[in-house]
Design a protein around this nucleic acid. Structure first.
Length: 295
DNA sequence: AACGATCCCTGTTGGC
DNA sequence: TGCCAACAGGGATCGT
């Protein structure tokens, strides 16, 4: 189940492989929790860490607005899980970098980092466990949504991937590295550091290339790489390793990490050509690439 | 407007 | 063995 660290793999590399939830992990999570929430009334809502509700102007609105209300559809855009809630509200959950949603019975012991709990009328608890608290829970009215940063969120990388033409328009004249643009959730939503590296490798494009310098062919190759990479991650339940890593709500670990071509594989041979994978920092994030395959 | 840097936060790691 | 600085990262925000 877990990838065994090779002798060449440093402890640091193994650490880096600890998964951070990106689109496939979030979608896997959404699919697990949706049936337990949709159509159910929330009978108790407990924000145990104020910081988790920081995106609301009045953090206590999170509890006050959700309690007693019925949940509608549970959807997703990018890395945001967005549930419709009766009263024309939107309940947003973002897992940040160490967040995990669990479905649990009240008698099950809870993790010390359980920062938010919503109990449904059926007695099941949705627990948001997040040691580093980069994740958050918010409840917005339509006006609040429109005036929040959510209005800048780009189209979902899986469900609403822009055409090559649209991508080219969005990237035109940009001097920022293409890796940074892939991470920019206003352009396309859902791609994080791990999948960005994998997508660029599949598209054979170097991470530091200025976004505006990509040819039409390269943009098309980049676009074509997005879906297979994300769907492969989805099929394998997301990237996961180690105890801190992303775990599915039922506790199973994802196995996508076994399939990574470049991320966290610094110094290991490229699966295409055998050249050692290199690491550079782009946009304050580690980037892994094959210096021969990727141009 | 675009873009880079900084901050938030904490478990784990590696160096001493 | 034990301590502690460094590191990882998504997104908001700020300065240039």
């Amino acid at each position: 189940m877990f990838r065994r660290a090779s002798p060449a793999m440093t402890a640091t590399a193994a650490r880096i492989l600890a998964g951070v939830p990106e689109l496939p992990e979030v979608e896997t999570t959404r699919r697990c929790i949706a049936p337990a929430l949709e159509g159910r009334r929330l009978v108790d809502v407990d924000v145990r860490r104020d910081r988790m509700a920081r995106r609301n102007d009045r953090p206590r609105d999170v509890r006050e607005r959700l309690t007693g209300r019925r949940v509608g559809g549970v959807g997703r855009i990018g890395k945001f899980i967005i549930a419709e809630v009766e009263g024309d509200l939107r309940w947003i959950m973002h897992l940040g970098m160490s967040g995990r949603l669990q479905l649990a019975n009240p008698d099950m012991p809870d993790d010390v980092h359980t920062n938010f709990v919503a109990t449904t009328e059926s007695g099941l608890e949705l627990r948001f466990v997040d040691p580093r608290t980069f994740g958050f829970v918010a409840v917005f009215t339509p006006d609040e949504w429109d005036s929040s940063s959510m209005r800048h969120l780009g189209p979902d990388a899986l469900d609403a991937l822009p055409t090559s033409r649209e991508l080219q328009d969005r990237l035109a004249h940009r001097t920022t590295p293409i890796k940074a643009s892939l991470l920019d959730q206003r352009i396309v939503a859902g791609i994080g550091n791990i999948y960005a590296d994998e997508i660029l490798h599949r598209a054979r494009i170097g991470p530091v290339r200025p976004a505006g310098s990509l040819s039409g062919k390269e943009i098309a190759a980049l676009r074509r790489a997005v879906r297979p990479i994300l769907e492969d991650g989805l099929r394998h339940g997301g990237t996961s390793l180690a105890d801190l890593a992303y775990l599915l709500p039922d506790g199973r670990a994802g196995t996508f990490v076994d399939r990574l071509a470049v991320y966290g594989r610094t110094g290991e041979p490229c699966r295409n050509c055998g050249t050692p994978i290199e690491r550079v920092v782009v946009a304050q994030r580690s980037s892994h690439f094959c210096p021969v395959c990727q141009r």
